[in-house]
């Protein structure tokens, strides 16, 4: 097991998709990763530890390390289309735990 001090601290970002159509989780993941690769490049994206955790009912959670929260929020904001269909992402909040996101933004409960 990794020592606590060596473990990377993470932040969880709650987002909401603003679109008329419905998307599968895989399509969302591709859209977010494409935006990150476009904005940050391959090296920059590799340094963010980006992970898309879950997505349902147009709401989802991504996580990243504490250094790159703002970069990931920018990448999410710059998503304009997913699979050639119009879609925008609005960031709802940032927290240190997934439980914290659910507590503060009660629209999202696990």
């Amino acid at each position: 097991m990794t020592k606590k001090t060596q473990r990377e601290k993470r932040r969880y970002i709650l987002f909401e998709l603003v679109c008329e159509e419905t998307f599968k989780r895989e399509e969302i993941v591709t859209g977010i990763w494409n935006s990150c690769l476009e904005f940050l490049g391959e090296l920059g994206a590799s340094r963010t530890s980006l992970w898309v955790h879950e997505y349902e009912n147009k709401k989802g959670i991504v996580s990243c390390n504490t250094r790159s929260v703002d970069e990931i929020i920018m990448c999410l904001s710059l998503v304009h289309e997913i699979e050639n269909r119009k879609a925008h992402i609005q960031v709802k909040g940032v927290s240190g735990t997934i439980k914290g996101l659910g507590r503060c933004y009660n629209g999202f409960c696990r």
Partner: peptide
């Protein structure tokens, strides 16, 4: 659709 939240502006 283009509206961004204040947190997004701070990140910008």
């Amino acid at each position: 659709e283009e509206v961004v939240s204040p947190r997004q502006l701070v990140a910008f």
